[in-house]
């Protein structure tokens, strides 16, 4: 044989799907929400987002190159996505050095120390966010008010968010539902524009990057739980729709909780995971001391994920009972 043939086990073809394709799909799905935040939060949003992405990519490159001494993994797009998601969870007037610390924690502590993409237990962006929330509580909880094409950055006017109204029981001061839907409220960069997040989620569903199980089970649980509370005591608790539209719930349900690495793999497990996130979120929002609980809820359920994977098995074909 002049031309040596290649030999391998079947299958000999591949779907062409790749990690980077999935990552870029998620990034594309986040773009509408980014545009809305650029409109409402202006310069601050742009600065925080770009610094977050740049420092995530940089840290991933440096750690991979000099500490782990492995081939660079920045091309798969996961660092860009982590940076984007981290920025989406930060207020737009956050000093940039704090953003960089968050990126270092997200990439260095939550991702690379476990062995890079695929081995981390907790969602890196959320670890970064929660680290910042605990370390810099003041900066992390002063959210700028939305203002079209805002050019102020650190000096942006800040104010209470819908969630703080809920917490303090001033339900009458909750903004208009339509404002909450399009993102004309105070909050973190990426979480305000519910409509843009839903659009992105639909895109991911169509591209089969995510399945409906996790987002729907989270949202439904939150809706039912807060609905029961509302019926029990309408003057104390906000209506379920406001809960759905405020805070990081939509961002968390569609983009953070569905992170492949840290969510269960079997559909049944995904529903359990989603219900768990929903219940913990409402508990923290309503009974806890923090106004927002989505991040903590997702991180807690991330920790339970290996257990869910171990016990939730898919239905076997021809299972003998």
């Amino acid at each position: 044989m002049e031309n040596k043939l290649y030999v391998s086990m079947s299958p000999h073809i591949h779907s062409g799907d790749s990690i980077s394709r999935k990552m870029w799909d998620v990034i594309i799905a986040l773009i509408p929400a980014l545009l809305v935040s650029l409109y409402f939060f202006g310069l601050g949003s742009l600065l925080v987002t770009s610094v977050s992405i740049a420092s995530c990519v940089l840290f991933e490159y440096l750690i991979g190159r000099f500490l782990l001494k492995q081939e660079s993994s920045i091309r798969d797009g996961s660092a860009i996505l982590t940076g984007l998601l981290l920025a989406f969870n930060l207020p737009s007037n956050l000093p940039l050095w704090i953003v960089a610390i968050g990126a270092l924690v997200a990439i260095g502590m939550a991702k690379m120390s476990f062995g890079g993409l695929g081995n981390n237990i907790f969602n890196p962006a959320l670890v970064g966010r929660v680290f910042l929330l605990i370390s810099f509580p003041q900066q992390m909880t002063s959210w700028p008010l939305p203002k079209a094409l805002n050019l102020n950055y650190l000096d942006a006017a800040t104010g209470a968010t819908p969630l703080s109204f809920m917490k303090s029981g001033r339900l009458d001061r909750l903004p208009d539902t339509l404002d909450m839907f399009i993102g004309n409220t105070g909050g973190s960069i990426g979480e305000v524009a519910t409509v843009a997040l839903i659009l992105g989620g639909l895109f991911l569903l169509i591209r089969k990057v995510i399945s409906w199980h996790i987002p729907v089970s989270i949202l439904l649980t939150v809706y039912i739980f807060t609905g029961i509370l509302r019926i029990a005591s309408p003057e104390l608790y906000a209506d379920p729709l406001s809960h759905m539209l405020t805070g990081g719930l939509m961002l968390g349900a569609v983009f953070m909780a569905t992170d492949y690495v840290t969510s269960p793999m079997v559909k049944k497990g995904q529903v359990i995971y989603g219900v768990g996130i929903g219940i913990i979120t409402v508990c923290i929002r309503v009974f806890g001391s923090y106004p927002e609980g989505v991040s903590f809820a997702i991180l807690m359920m991330n920790g339970v994920t290996p257990l869910i994977n171990a016990y939730c098995k898919p239905k076997r074909f021809g299972e003998v009972k």
Partner: peptide, 16 residues
């Protein structure tokens, strides 16, 4: 690359 636990293989397996 590393397994990213996307669950595609579970989805595709005809034997569950």
């Amino acid at each position: 690359y590393n397994c990213i636990r996307c669950g595609n293989c579970i989805e595709a397996c005809p034997m569950g």
